[in-house]
């Protein structure tokens, strides 16, 4: 797809642009966290009864948490953890899912059968319990978190890539390349991958959002990296350390809204990209109404004249 066309149709899609902007803001916050955050998250705070769950004030715009730390600072640095886990985990998923999808779609036959059956089985097994089991057995920490979320999140990608590969494989230029004796790896690299890649990117955006949701959930359940304060971790502390009974809504609401912000942004962006790469002709047979007849005002015919005359006469 030519560059110009891509941006044109992308910008025509308002939801996608909104999603892109939402995501860009989140990424910027994560990158420039030290510049934006009002405090250093690593300074130790001397905890007194006054600065535990203190409500929003001029010093702490979003109040403080159970350890007397600034919620806004935590929120800004939390973006880093969520986004890093999201991006790296989805990278693992993409590599696994992309490879399995490409191989299954390209080679077909028994290879495809085995790989897709495996994908289907993993799709049926509930995600979160398996994640919990893996973390319970492997231990906690960011690398493990990234690893387990990554190796369980590839099923969707594999399916998308496989079906796209199947359709690309039948195209003329692939058959021609094969006819002139090009090797399988060459064909996959030069002909198939470039056409499958855009769809993988679209899929990646959605995989990232799922990974971020998974990270928050695990962290909330107390299975996150205890040394890094992600948004899920903030909510875990708030939930288990009395924010509810203290009425400290300021430590409950902002991390959740932050998660929604990023996930919603990614979802909108993903849908927008999908519409650009995979435009669907929108037909709606029931959306037809009277507006279909849009001809200029008619010359009044004999029937209408009679009717008008009658009304006037009465």
């Amino acid at each position: 797809m030519p560059q110009n066309n891509f941006w044109q149709s992308f910008f025509r899609n308002r939801m996608g642009v909104i999603g892109f902007v939402m995501l860009a803001i989140a990424v910027a916050v994560a990158i420039f966290a030290p510049l934006i955050a009002p405090y250093d998250p690593n300074t130790t705070v001397r905890v007194t009864i006054d600065n535990i769950y203190s409500p929003p004030s001029a010093q702490n715009w979003l109040g403080t948490d159970d350890a007397g730390k600034d919620v806004l600072t935590n929120l800004i640095y939390g973006a880093r953890v969520s986004l890093i886990v999201g991006f790296f985990a989805s990278f693992i998923s993409l590599v696994i899912g992309g490879t399995i999808g490409l191989v299954a779609g390209f080679y077909g036959g028994r290879v495809e059968n085995v790989l897709m059956r495996l994908t289907d089985i993993l799709l049926v097994i509930p995600d979160l319990p398996l994640l919990i089991v893996l973390i319970a057995l492997l231990g906690r920490g960011m690398p493990i978190l990234i690893f387990v979320i990554g190796i369980l999140g590839w099923t969707g990608t594999a399916r998308v890539v496989r079906s796209q590969t199947l359709s690309v494989r039948e195209r003329k230029f692939v058959q021609r390349a094969r006819a002139i004796g090009a090797g399988n790896l060459y064909i996959i690299r030069r002909h198939i991958f470039p056409l499958v890649f855009p769809l993988m990117l679209v899929n990646a955006v959605l995989v990232i959002s799922a990974a971020i949701l998974n990270e928050s959930t695990l962290a909330f359940l107390g299975l996150g990296d205890p040394t890094r304060l992600s948004w899920g971790q903030m909510l875990n502390f708030a939930f288990s350390r009395g924010a509810m009974s203290a009425g400290a809504w300021w430590s409950l609401v902002p991390p959740g809204l932050a998660i929604i912000w990023v996930v919603l942004g990614l979802t909108l962006l993903g849908n927008g990209l999908e519409r650009v790469f995979n435009p669907r002709l929108e037909m709606h047979h029931l959306a037809i109404g009277d507006e279909m007849v849009a001809r200029p005002p008619q010359v009044v015919g004999p029937v209408a004249v009679a009717a008008v005359g009658k009304t006037v006469g009465e």
Partner: peptide
């Protein structure tokens, strides 16, 4: 879809 279930429950 974007809202974490647990967070919505907490609220």
């Amino acid at each position: 879809w974007a809202t974490p279930t647990f967070w919505f429950g907490m609220i």
